[in-house]
Design a protein around this nucleic acid. Sequence first.
DNA 1: CTGAAAGCGCTAACAA
DNA 2: TTGTTAGCGCTTTCAG
Lengths: 340, 340
Amino acid sequence: MTPQKPRRSLTLRDVSEAAGVSEMTVSRVLRNRGDVSPATREKVQTAARSLGYVPNKIAGGLASQRVNLVAVVIPSLSNLVFPDVLGGISAELDDTGLQPVVGVTNYAPAREETVLHDMLSWRPSGVILAGLEHSRGSRAMLQNAGIPIVQIMDVDGTPIDTAVGVSHDRAGREMAAEILRAGYRRIGFIGTHMPEDHRARKRLTGFEGALAEAGVALAAREFYQGGSSLAKGRELTERILAREPDLDFLYYSNDLIGAGGLIWARDQGIDIPGRLGLAGFNGVDLLDGLPVRLATTDARRLDIGRRAARIVAGKDPRPEGGVIALSPTFLPGDTIRRPR
Amino acid sequence: MTPQKPRRSLTLRDVSEAAGVSEMTVSRVLRNRGDVSPATREKVQTAARSLGYVPNKIAGGLASQRVNLVAVVIPSLSNLVFPDVLGGISAELDDTGLQPVVGVTNYAPAREETVLHDMLSWRPSGVILAGLEHSRGSRAMLQNAGIPIVQIMDVDGTPIDTAVGVSHDRAGREMAAEILRAGYRRIGFIGTHMPEDHRARKRLTGFEGALAEAGVALAAREFYQGGSSLAKGRELTERILAREPDLDFLYYSNDLIGAGGLIWARDQGIDIPGRLGLAGFNGVDLLDGLPVRLATTDARRLDIGRRAARIVAGKDPRPEGGVIALSPTFLPGDTIRRPR
DNA sequence: CTGAAAGCGCTAACAA
DNA sequence: TTGTTAGCGCTTTCAG
């Protein structure tokens, strides 16, 4: 009942001997495979439990050539964004016997390649990874893996196998349209300076493109290094307005710095959204309790996680053309004037 | 150079044939084990790379009885708290060849047991898990695993093997002392109603204990269900003050709801910290950009992750008595009066 | 420095 | 319904 700390772990053989049946029968009981008489089943379960047997998936995986792991590769955990995606993935994987295993790349392609290599060496049943841009090496590994590969978050590009996400170009364009419709014209942009954050880059490109089509140019831009935070948002907002005091709108590359800017601007007594409008990106509900809600675009993170997981799990078929494009949805909040 | 999608993955044998050496030699090169002549090494590496060979860790793990995985089991990812712990763990594991694998329990003991069972079935080299309270089944599994087990976050109790954390009882007591020293006397508490959040419970117990020793009783308390958010903090703060308008201090069970309360109170024009003092718990730097910094206790999350990882990795020895108690540190912020 | 043989703990496939 | 046999792809061990 209370086994001592064993020198080596228990094997099927130990259970088999304790229960007086073959290893194969034990294996069947423990996996609910094949027909086993209720009596034997009971005997085996009792034996396994009382010994404290924990099956060895390493051996099982090797024998069955099947591993119930799904590799999930994302750039960052501290991002407020990816926990939501993971939530969606876990929720859909929960009843499939598949288990997500998370790897983090810190937006570094070389690290992504290492992480992928490590995860593929466990022969997972599928891969979910953020983004459509990857090193040659990473692409080669993924192509050769012979398992479902779902690239998430972005659909502006060509997937290796399947992509589930939103168009960031479109998200940028639509935000530009909303801002122009509301009558703002002196527009500034504040974003991270990360060449590897392709989605932020695509949003900016789309944003500027749509402005340009309306004959409007970005009046100022401010970039920062390192992670996003409220503090960074305050600081950059102060700086950009010091340089260009007549800006009437600020588009932030994410909600967190946007919220920092919003808090600062309110503290300064700036009339929002009258004198100055603000918008972020993501739709993180962490910030819901602020006295004023920041305008933003919902990046559909939960849905993206769910749909990706459903494909990997085989619940949904691979879509026609390999792409599932969800619609980024504009959330007006309180920081953009209602257009007349 | 550009292999087609293979029906089965490549094996050592494929590389061995391509390079014209034994599988054993290939294995040696790929693991940097034993002596191999530079010429052979080169040949093998070229062959492996050009084929796009990815080693099979399932087979390797079975043969070597060694798996470079560390199971990390935590209650939640969305908590702002655990990403920091994970950061500390990753940082220390990075140069050890060990890889963290994260499992999430949602504060449910039954789920914890399942997650542990699943992770142990991969025969990891160690386990890091949050908390000292576990089901009988979980404890039995951990005791029998025969690998280092490090319980983190808490030290108020008896570890299975090793514990690294802060005393939440002490954190609560120390906060009580600070509040009393600053002259507050009508003190309210706002916290989550989670029987399984033992650390929050211990903080409250310590807090009330220290108040009682000074002859002060909690004047009001308010509990909530579900996750923490700024919005919940606003709402509960409003409610508790509606019920007990003469409270002069609010102690929150975490920074996020504390910040929600702070924002609401400032919006109401309440004088903080004069008329009302506030404090949270954790020291999450996400909130650093708020115009007023919430008083809190730094729970030493990063250090906890690092120290735990060092022990699992064998960089540090298991401490005398099995417990590493870090000091929770009071951060005064701007929401508590400076004592005269 | 390199190779051959044995086997890690389990499951697929078949036999009884 | 249960058992037997033959591996899964690697690494350990020992021999050259």
